[in-house]
Simulated assay, not measured.
Amino acid sequence: MRIFSGLAALAALAACGTASEDQAVESDPLVEAEVEARSELAESGVVYCALGGATELRSDCLIERSETGQGLVLTMRHPDGGFRRLLVTNDGSGLVAADGAEAVAVTPISEREIEVAIGGDTYRLPATVR
């Protein structure tokens, strides 16, 4: 199974829940192809996002990874110049806002993807959920 380099630490999301309903859906070849395509796109620095309360995910955001004294920080860049910084945690919670200002909700979508919501923004990221 492919693990998005730089997001490998998100494997700790196992403690956040399971995706048993979605696992059955993921065996669909079309769904599996979509997941693979999003994963490859993320490898190039592009991720699907829905910003400002939008419901449709689009490949409009960029992801940057940087190591800091706190750990791995993911910067999600928006097409309008805005951004969100997320800190990958080592305590099993997955991600928190790097500045601590807003709560981050991490939802496993399948064994290979998570959805991250913060404020009115949502990001679909490849990760290994166990």
Rank of each mutant, 00 (worst) to 15 (best):
R2M: 07
I3D: 09
I3L: 12
F4P: 02
S5Y: 05
G6W: 03
G6N: 09
L7E: 03
A8H: 05
A9C: 06
A9Y: 04
L10I: 07
L10Q: 04
A11N: 11
A12C: 08
L13S: 08
L13I: 06
A15E: 11
A15S: 14
G17M: 07
T18K: 06
T18E: 12
S20W: 09
Q23G: 02
A24G: 15
A24Q: 08
V25D: 03
V25Q: 09
E26D: 11
S27Y: 12
S27E: 13
S27N: 10
D28A: 10
D28Y: 06
P29A: 12
E32Q: 13
A33W: 11
A33I: 03
E36I: 08
E36Q: 13
E36N: 13
E40I: 02
E40L: 12
E40F: 06
E40V: 03
E40N: 10
A42P: 00
A42Q: 07
A42I: 04
S44I: 07
G45V: 04
V46T: 15
V46M: 11
C49N: 00
A50K: 03
L51C: 03
L51P: 01
L51T: 00
G52H: 08
G52W: 02
G52A: 12
G53Q: 06
A54P: 02
A54K: 12
T55D: 15
L57M: 13
L57F: 15
R58D: 02
S59E: 10
D60Y: 01
D60R: 03
C61V: 00
C61R: 00
C61A: 05
L62E: 12
I63A: 09
E64W: 06
E64R: 11
E64Y: 05
R65P: 00
S66E: 15
S66M: 10
E67G: 03
Q70R: 14
G71M: 08
V73M: 08
L74Y: 01
R77V: 13
P79T: 08
P79G: 11
G81I: 06
G82F: 00
G82N: 11
F83N: 08
F83H: 14
R84I: 04
R84Q: 10
R84G: 00
R85Y: 03
R85H: 08
L86D: 03
L86Q: 03
L87I: 11
L87K: 08
V88P: 01
V88M: 09
N90T: 15
G92S: 09
G92A: 12
S93F: 01
G94D: 07
V96W: 01
A97Y: 01
A97E: 15
A98M: 04
D99E: 15
D99I: 03
D99N: 15
G100C: 05
G100Q: 07
A101H: 10
A101P: 00
E102S: 13
E102Q: 14
A103I: 05
A103K: 13
A103Y: 04
A105T: 15
T107H: 10
T107R: 14
P108F: 04
I109L: 15
S110G: 12
E111N: 12
E111W: 08
R112N: 13
I114E: 00
I114H: 04
E115R: 15
A117L: 09
A117Q: 14
I118G: 00
G119S: 10
G119N: 07
G119A: 10
D121T: 09
Y123V: 02
Y123A: 05
L125C: 05
P126V: 07
A127K: 04
A127S: 10
A127I: 06
T128H: 13
T128F: 11
V129D: 02
R130P: 14
R130E: 12
